[in-house]
Amino acid sequence: MLEHVKKLKYGWTTGACATAAAKAAYLALKRGFFSDRVTITLPQGKKVSFRIFNHKILDRHCAIASVIKDAGDDPDVTHGAEIRVRITILSIDRGIVFKAGKGVGTITKPGLQLPVGQPAINPVPRQMIRYALNEVFPSPDVEVEISVVNGEELAKKTMNPRLGIMGGLSILGTTGIVVPFSCAAWIASIHRGIDVARAANLTHLIASVGNVSEETAKKIYTLPESAFIEMGDFVGGVLKYLKTHPVQWLTLAGGVAKFTKLAQGHLDLHSGRSQVDFAQLAEWVAELGAEDSFVEKVRLANTALGVFRNCHVKRLPLADFIAEKALAVVKETLDPVIFKIEILMVDRKGNCLGRAFA
């Protein structure tokens, strides 16, 4: 797996692309012409070069440049997006002012790294842009307006609407580099979702593996949208953050295969990083009173869902049993933080199969 990742192509964050476009536009205003490429400095000090896609000097005070985002081999929704920056020279002592253009969101809920009303241009990209513009001219007085072509539509495929970032995408990045298939961006979104919920004084959070389990939870609980966290496979990302940022009540909702792995002690539920232990599952079925022939059938099974279906036919309460085991793992992980915990297991049609409380 590691050898495979090393061969994958790294990419650039929206923050790095915006930095390159901003520097290109500001350089053009100072020089009177655009270059085909521009070099910027990433937070760790590495220098990288970007090709400028579109550019135009509007007048002696304003210029626009854009970069096409290359996310490498990462399945990023913004891969191929055009990141545009409009630089406008301001009066003296205004400093650098950031503005959300078309396709870039605005913060509407407290709890994020920026205050309500600010453009969703995160702190590190702002830092990168400031550094890049100061490389061109010390202490510039400019407005930096960042836009993303089709950004409002792309944002619908992200967690931004749930986080209260409305009108478009966030300009993100902490290193400037997109690591292929990195878990960091998703886990960071989970953390920001928890921050937003806590800032809204929500006491009950529901973290779900996917849409089906989330919709099932919504039928049970009427809660604000900010209470729902899409954790995917990263239950560990939820639990570890809640140890230092607790809430009163946590519900985890997911399918039988994922939560069987959780019950067996896995906090990363991705199929490539954890597997159902059918030998242990067979032992648990035996504890429920199954005959030896059925226990052996479970030991040789191919899917957890098939095991659960067969147990349902035999009236073996495996779902509730697994939910209790998963609950024990969650309680141990959150120790010594104590609050109400619930496990909600669903099938692929959204039917509730098993439930456990503490």
Rank of each mutant, 00 (worst) to 15 (best):
T251H: 06
T251N: 05
L252D: 03
A253T: 10
G254C: 07
G254Y: 04
G255H: 07
G255A: 06
G255R: 02
V256T: 14
V256Q: 03
V256G: 00
K258T: 12
F259L: 12
T260I: 07
T260Q: 04
K261C: 02
K261D: 05
K261M: 12
A263G: 13
A263Y: 01
A263D: 04
Q264Y: 08
Q264T: 05
Q264P: 07
G265V: 04
H266M: 06
H266L: 02
H266P: 04
H266F: 14
L267H: 11
D268L: 05
L269A: 10
L269S: 11
H270N: 12
S271V: 07
S271H: 13
S271A: 14
G272C: 08
S274C: 07
Q275L: 12
Q275N: 11
V276A: 05
V276L: 04
D277G: 03
D277C: 01
D277K: 00
F278I: 00
F278A: 00
F278H: 01
F278K: 02
A279S: 15
A279H: 15
A279E: 14
L281Q: 07
A282N: 02
A282K: 02
A282E: 03
E283V: 10
E283F: 10
W284P: 00
W284R: 01
W284V: 01
A286H: 13
A286P: 06
A286V: 07
A286F: 10
A286N: 13
E287C: 14
L288R: 02
L288N: 01
G289Q: 12
G289L: 12
G289I: 07
G289Y: 10
G289S: 09
A290H: 09
A290V: 11
A290L: 06
A290F: 03
D292C: 02
D292Y: 11
D292H: 11
S293H: 12
S293E: 14
S293K: 13
S293T: 14
S293F: 09
F294Y: 15
V295Y: 04
V295S: 05
V295P: 06
E296I: 08
K297R: 13
K297Q: 15
V298G: 07
V298L: 00
R299A: 15
L300R: 15
L300Y: 13
L300D: 12
L300S: 13
